[in-house]
């Protein structure tokens, strides 16, 4: 446990010293701000503001942001040789991977918290459905955790950060697009199975419409756990090379 905490603290420090992390934060806030503004302008007098606007935007943005936030975490340690020191420290491989994952999730949580400013603006000018919004935020928080875990896995697989980012974007994009694939499959049951496997399939029709369902939570927790488990095995395999 100590190991996880120490690694977590170092990585959080690195996020706040990393230009990439700030760029991603700036880009996310810019894009969400523009959309929020457009939604407000457009909604005035016609329909209520979309309660899950920001989480819906993030569900796509994380396909690119999660890999960029996580690509460094293990790939760099391997390239720089510091992994050799980490793996000879008296901590388990799991503690190292977990600490890194939690630091990424923590940084993401801060980004998410920053977007709350839009909700504060909404509350001050209208009466938004806050229950709906909160459900969507909880959903995108779990969703984000799963995408970051995918990013960590690919960061463990290669020592090249660009390759790691590229591969995780590819996988996340497939998981994201899955719903579209599901839509063109004529066999209904198969289409449903495909949908159930995708990241978006557990978000748009549940959290994003204000529903919190145990099965969706289990899905994201399961994906996260599975990705971290494989990542730990991959880190362990470094010892055999």
């Amino acid at each position: 446990m100590n190991g996880t905490w120490v690694v977590f603290r170092r990585e959080v420090g690195q996020y706040f010293a990393s230009p990439i992390a700030y760029l991603i934060a700036a880009a996310l806030l810019l894009v969400t701000g523009l959309y929020f503004n457009a939604d407000l302008t457009f909604s005035v007098g016609t329909k209520p503001a979309e309660p899950a606007l920001i989480p819906l935007l993030l569900s796509f943005a994380m396909v690119f942001c999660a890999p960029l936030l996580t690509m460094r975490l293990l790939a760099e340690e391997r390239r720089e040789g510091t992994l050799e020191l980490l793996l000879t420290a008296p901590v388990s491989d799991g503690a190292i991977v977990l600490g890194k994952f939690l630091s990424a999730w923590f940084y993401y949580t801060i980004l998410l918290a920053l977007t709350f400013i839009y909700q504060i603006i909404l509350v001050s000018i209208t009466q938004p459905d806050m229950g709906h919004t909160m459900a969507a935020y909880i959903g995108i928080w779990l969703y984000g955790g799963a995408t970051l875990a995918v990013g960590i896995l690919f960061s463990a697989i290669t020592e090249n950060q660009i390759v790691a980012a590229f591969l995780s974007i590819a996988l996340l994009f497939i998981l994201w697009m899955g719903e579209l694939i599901g839509q063109i499959i004529t066999n209904l049951e198969l289409a449903e199975v495909v949908r159930q496997l995708t990241l978006i399939g557990h978000f748009t029709s549940s959290f994003a419409v204000g529903l919190i369902r145990a099965e969706d939570i289990a899905y994201y927790a399961g994906i996260t756990a599975l990705m971290l488990f494989i990542a730990i095995r991959v880190v362990e395999s470094n010892r055999w090379r």
């Binding site: 010293a17 990393s18 720089e80 040789g81 510091t82 992994l83 050799e84 020191l85 000879t88 008296p90």
Partner: peptide
């Protein structure tokens, strides 16, 4: 590992 101090060949550091 608790009882060993190790300096690898290529001194690994975190430049930042």
């Amino acid at each position: 590992r608790r009882r060993v101090g190790y300096l690898p060949e290529r001194v690994p550091v975190y430049p930042d």
